[in-house]
Design a protein around this nucleic acid. Structure first.
Lengths: 249, 249
DNA sequence: GTTGAAATTCAACGAACGTTCAACTAAATT
DNA sequence: AATTTAGTTGAACGTTCGTTGAATTTCAAC
């Protein structure tokens, strides 16, 4: 199964392609076209549900360019993921710093922290380029997928998440770490499903709720999760007291 | 694109296959084998990430049997979905009725309702056959997928969900319907991500939390979501008061 | 034991899959 | 103007895809 071709000159080019060929100016445009199309299609039908030809067809570009620019289909997925992650993480951290700075030495307000974590998604989905909606739908699928969930999400987002959890720990200093992490986990599930906009709640509610009305959802997501964090905090202390009592008995 | 074959005798058999061929006893066993393998693989790699040959290979069965028993690959997915849905829904409704009955005329406790909705998942994932874990992972992917999320979930689960929301409405009679539905939406996201067991929280928490320790998660999921429901309820009333005040002004 | 339907097997269909290669174009370097 | 290089193209590679038709086996009813 090893490559037998004693390839001659072309090897250097192929190797170079694997690294990252795009520095020229006219390549950047086609790279973006491919990323836009891939983002949309991956979000709609999932990674395996989309062929490279689907992507290049939608981008009106030759098939071979995916391998050339991104090395492989998997490389394309990671590039899609990476493209918007930096921007998203940057604003999240900026908002987090602003919340922490405005409070001075005082503990930050829990609602402000959750808002700083989630508002960048709201802003981009409602006012950003339409690609952001696809991006968030893709993240929702990835986040819930055993195949990619534990890998891609961790790599691209966990450093920022860690900083938020540290801040939340300051807001709820008496809270057990396990309760803190699980509370974040629930927030993560609610958040990704919300910004995936699958439309299921529209049918379920008979039109009372609209997935696309993200401002209304976000307005509710923050108090919902803040209350959840606090409840876990107190119920965790109750559990600890019960354990201590059992220990003494 | 229409079938030109003036097919003679075999048509009756083929038609019958589309409906549901399995009544014989030895067919039931192979059907189950196929469903088990499909459930596991769909959960691991998603619908499009699994080929029919992957499934029949794992089930040690001929390729053609999927078309014979389930009509098509999509038919197989729906059969996987349907197989455990009835059992799950039945116990959910039984627990719901028990909660409502035990309370008599009084409003049910919110925590009891959320527990009735979620505990059947906990029981089956921890004590049921291992196929249940795959099933819940598959549901998580479907729930967050634009392609299937709004269709399959609605068809198989929404009737039961509606009954729960009615019961929750009795527990929070002053709560606005929009707040109620959105609160359920957040619960749904947290629930599906939890039982998907993607393992992401294990890495994020550095081992403090374990996805596989579902009893600990469930113990926290209930108070988290109950507090969320109540918080939405009161913040919804605050919003209503604010709207009324603006109206008078 | 024969019959007949249900279940299974085998082989193959055309289409689509991800990837690669050599040839070609266009821009930058000398 | 000549040469190099990044970018693009079209074609093809071998493989796998979902599905199908016909032949074969299994098993219960007669």
């Amino acid at each position: 199964m090893q490559k037998k071709k004693t390839s001659t000159r072309t090897v250097t080019r192929a190797r170079a392609a694997k690294v990252a060929p795009g520095t020229g100016s006219r390549s950047a445009a086609t790279r973006e076209r491919i990323l836009d199309a891939a983002e949309k299609l991956f979000a709609e039908r999932g990674y395996h549900g989309v062929s490279i030809r689907d992507v290049t067809g939608a981008a009106d570009v030759d098939v071979a360019l995916v391998s050339y620019h991104f090395g492989s289909k998997q490389g394309l997925l990671e590039a899609v993921f990476l493209r918007r992650a930096a921007d998203l993480n940057d604003e999240r951290l900026a908002l987090l710093d602003a919340v922490l700075a405005s409070g001075g030495r005082r503990a930050p307000r829990l609602e402000d922290l959750i808002d700083a974590f989630t508002r960048p998604l709201l802003d981009r989905s409602t006012r950003g380029s339409p690609g952001w909606k696809s991006y968030f739908a893709l993240i929702a699928e990835i986040n819930n997928s055993p195949e990619f969930g534990g890998v891609l999400m961790t790599r691209f987002f966990d450093p920022v998440v860690q900083r938020f959890i540290e801040a939340i720990r300051r807001a709820l200093p008496q809270c057990d770490d396990r309760d803190l992490y699980w509370a974040y986990h629930f927030l993560s599930g609610a958040l990704t499903l919300t910004f995936a906009e699958t439309g299921r709640i529209d049918k379920l509610s008979g039109g009372v709720c609209r997935s696309s009305d993200l401002a209304s959802v976000h307005e509710r997501l923050v108090p919902y999760c803040a209350a959840g964090f606090r409840a876990l905090c107190v119920s965790g202390q109750a559990r600890a007291r019960a354990r201590a009592k059992r220990g003494r008995a």
